[in-house]
Every structure is written in structure tokens, then in C-alpha cells.
Amino acid sequence: MASTRLPGKPLADVGGRSMIVEVTRRSVAAGIGRVVVATDDEDVRAAVAGAGYEVVMTRSDHASGSDRIFEALGHVDPEGRARRIVNVQGDLPTLDPALIRAAVALLDDPAVDIGTLAAEIVDAGERTNPNVVKVVGTEVAPARLRAFYFTRATAPYGEGPLFHHIGLYAYRRAALERFVALPPSPLESREKLEQLRALEAGMRIDVAVVDTVPLGVDTPEDLERARSLLAREA
């Protein structure tokens, strides 16, 4: 809600729904389990509850979304029944529900601690854009990488594809518990990318390579683009 470039963006109208409700609707459509919105804002809580979805209030001082979902998990599942936890950011109103399923499917491999997503970069300008996070990894199966590093730099060097990281994460519960207990790592602090904390701690992150990057809404221009894309879907 305190976004400097788009204040109040979770409640911005996108196709007749608030953005947070649209993201929630798409998360439910993934069909993988219980969906709960975690927020520290009463207006967001009211909007989500008014649309008939589950919502839980969390503290306002969390440093990251991972910390927030861990608190929410303690509220909604204190018995520890849920073994896989997905963190979906609330500003992805064009998210394809299939992408959520793709991230969760990576955890079918017992060696994987965290699953996430990437798409091959096709826009040359994104290769050098520091706001486009790149994942560097090795292919372990078709359309699947094991991540070695995430960076805002242009990497890896040389000819070949580059991959645009999509910030949606599926955690094993034990991995999430371990992750939030770790202090920020040196590379995390340098790159401003929290997933590096997991890699520096020796956790395994696998990446499903998908065809599309959901639009993250950060500016008024992004919002208008999201409205246009959703209008085409209607």
C-alpha cells in the first residue's frame, strides 16, 4: 500500500476487481490448495474478505515477503499440516495459474528446497537492465535449471540464452523455516536479492523455465498495461 511509485496499488482497479483480489482469484484457479492473503493493511483485509477469500493480518515490520508468509503460516496452520508453501506476490494481476503449478511441481524432487520460475529473455534491452534479475544455472532436465546464482548484472557471459527470473517461490516448509531464521547474507545484501541467502546457505533452488513473464505492476504505466491485457482476456 505504501508503494512510492503507485500508492495503494493492491486496491487499484484491474478489470473490475482490485489487484489483490485478481491475484487471489488466479491463485485459487491454480487448484493446488488453500489460498490465504497475508497483509498488514485493514483496507486490503476488508477488500479480500469482502470478495469471499481468506485473509490474515500480519505485522507491519517484516523485511521481506518470506518473513510475512512465515508469520501468516503460523497463524493459519500452527499444526504444520501444509508441507509446501507458495509465495505469490500481490502485484501480478496477469499471472497464469499454470505458473504456480510449475513452481510447486519442482518440489516433487526431494533434493529441491525451493522452486521458482524464469523465462528466456527475448528483449535485448532486458539483458543489461539491472531491474531484470537474471538466473544463472545449469539444465538438469528439459525446461528446468538448477540455480547457481541470481544477479542484476548481465550473466552468464558469452553466447547463449539469458533467463529473466520471476519472483514466485515454492518452499518446502522446512526450507522456509530455515530461510527466515538465517541472517541476511553478504551477496544478498550486495545484489539486494534475498534468494541469494538460500544459495549461500547451501540450499538448492530449481527453476522451471516458462514461456511468459507475468506483468509486475509498479508504476501507473504498468497499471494501464495490466488493465489493457485483462480487457483482452475478458
Rank of each mutant, 00 (worst) to 15 (best):
R5I: 01
L6D: 00
L6E: 00
P10R: 06
L11T: 07
L11Q: 02
A12S: 07
A12V: 07
V14Y: 09
R17G: 00
R17K: 14
I20D: 03
V21E: 00
V21N: 04
V23N: 02
T24K: 11
R26C: 00
A29N: 00
A30D: 00
G31V: 09
R34E: 07
V36I: 11
V37F: 02
T39K: 13
E42Q: 15
D43P: 00
A49F: 01
A49Y: 00
G50L: 05
A51W: 06
Y53I: 05
E54G: 01
E54H: 03
V55G: 03
M57F: 05
D61W: 10
D61C: 08
H62Y: 14
R68E: 02
R68V: 11
I69P: 08
I69M: 11
I69F: 06
F70S: 12
F70K: 15
A72L: 11
L73N: 10
P78F: 09
G80H: 13
R81E: 14
R84M: 02
R84W: 05
I85K: 13
I85C: 02
G90R: 11
D91F: 01
P97A: 03
A98K: 10
L99F: 03
A103K: 07
A103S: 04
V104P: 07
V104G: 04
L107P: 02
D109H: 13
P110Y: 10
V112A: 03
T116E: 00
A119N: 09
A119Q: 10
D123I: 14
R127A: 11
T128C: 00
V136C: 11
T138C: 01
T138L: 12
A143W: 14
R144S: 03
L145H: 14
Y149N: 13
F150G: 00
T151P: 04
E159S: 13
G160H: 10
P161A: 08
L162H: 15
I166Y: 05
G167D: 06
Y171T: 08
R173F: 09
A175S: 15
L176I: 10
E177R: 12
E177H: 13
R178P: 01
R178N: 03
R178T: 13
V180R: 14
A181D: 04
P183Q: 09
P184E: 12
S185M: 01
E188Q: 13
E188N: 08
S189Q: 15
R190P: 02
R190A: 10
E191D: 02
L196K: 09
R197Q: 10
L199G: 08
G202W: 10
D206V: 04
D206S: 03
V210S: 00
D211E: 15
D211V: 07
T212L: 11
V213C: 08
V217W: 03
D218R: 15
D218G: 08
P220R: 14
E221P: 03
R225M: 10
A226F: 02
L229K: 15
L230I: 15
L230Y: 06
A231L: 12
